[in-house]
Write a protein that binds this DNA or RNA. Structure first.
Lengths: 225, 225
DNA sequence: CAAATAAGTGTTTTTATAACACTTATAAAT
DNA sequence: ATTTATAAGTGTTATAAAAACACTTATTTG
């Protein structure tokens, strides 16, 4: 191939995906148990290499799709890790992307195929390279973003209850929220639709289901938790 | 060289620096008039390529130093631009870093050497590739950051006046601030030291000089404009 | 029908932000 | 010397946002 900048060295470029899910009132990350070299039998993020004619964003989506079967997932670039020795085997610069998925959408057979597992963010295994740091920075970003952008609904089924939503926020933010203040805010923002169906599984009284109404949200784009 | 991931394509990796300065109550960006191909005679950010054994952050500092003569500059990674066709000559992925420098520290001979020029952010020339977008995203980040981290002092001399500081904030944020509220906030945060020397150049009354006291700031790390 | 349990609901207090106008120190002009 | 012009400096009130706080209700189970 022709090279316009001939003297310049080239570098292997990777994408690593921090895939967040939610379960048992805990924020979780999907990790794979590497059945291949290098670093065989250790845990790592889902990653892959960027093709020479491939957009960086597209590479992230392709890798996520290959490793999770998911398409059309909300994903954001986090940051690029470029220490020369971050991968001891070869110089690899890696850009991280973070995705929020509903765990049930993740295909069980892929879990088996990649020997993947969900880990609570409070209880991560030893990870290869700088993957721990990558998760930390993605989590920090997530904690900032969830307060101003309605992305948490990617982690919940279409119908969810307010206690569920609150537990999700508490799980992500790592702090407890006041039930009344939380609901008051949601109410004033006015993008949740109350159904007249109840989830009876979590309590005797039952909790009403709600849905996120994207159109209502788009009218104001006002979001602040 | 040995390659651990043999089948993987490699990509040219660049760093582009968005160097902000402040003058005439305006936030400015340093651009170079390219005297070389490709895109000769057009304006661009200061950039360069990442060496194969070089940390990404180090590359950013090296490039900044080469093109500005500056060392020990406060610099932050902004984001990575990776569209396959962003550089029409060759596939180049570029990570942007943003720096804030005091214009007077920038060596005049380098301005000549690189045919560089400061441009007000409200009046940018046509730029190559996606450099306009890069400036926009760095500016957005800067606007968020200046409110919670004391980085503006990089754009001011050691001794500065409160009117100067306020004009700087107004220039960065692109909005006017209330003088009394602005000063009240600074006062409660308590990291500025008032000198008993006045700057008489801007008014008849003269404005007291202040200094940023990093130790005082570090005690509370409380910053919010 | 009593007990247990999580869901649901408003008001008050506190804190932060926003709005607002006059006095003062000095240099320059007369 | 006196006046004039100019930007620097200074507090209070009003409004909005965030935080603190406790009881009632619907339903299941024993």
């Amino acid at each position: 191939m022709d090279r316009a900048y001939k003297e310049v060295q080239q570098i292997t470029l990777a994408v690593d995906c921090i895939i967040f899910g939610f379960n048992n009132n805990q924020l979780e990350v999907l990790l794979i148990h590497r059945g291949f070299e290098p670093e065989k039998e250790r845990w790592s993020l889902m990653g892959g290499f960027v093709g020479n004619r491939e957009d960086l964003d597209a590479a992230a989506h392709r890798i996520l799709h290959d490793l999770s079967g998911l398409e059309d997932v909300y994903m954001e670039q986090v940051r690029t890790f470029g220490k020369a020795d971050r991968d001891p085997y070869e110089r690899v610069v890696s850009t991280t992307y973070s995705a929020l998925i509903l765990k049930e959408q993740y295909k069980a057979e892929l879990i088996a195929q990649y020997r993947a597992r969900w880990f609570s963010i409070d209880d991560l295994p030893n990870l290869i390279f700088d993957h721990k740091q990558m998760i930390v920075s993605a989590l920090n970003r997530l904690r900032r973003r969830v307060r101003t952008v309605p992305i948490v609904f990617n982690l919940l089924p279409k119908k969810f209850t307010l206690p569920q939503l609150q537990l999700l926020y508490e799980g992500i933010l790592g702090e407890e929220l006041d039930k009344r203040n939380f609901r008051k805010k949601l109410n004033t923002m006015d993008f949740l639709v109350k159904l007249d169906e109840k989830d009876m599984s979590g309590s005797r009284k039952g909790a009403y289901y709600y849905q996120f109404d994207e159109n209502k949200y788009n009218r104001t784009m006002n979001f602040n938790i």
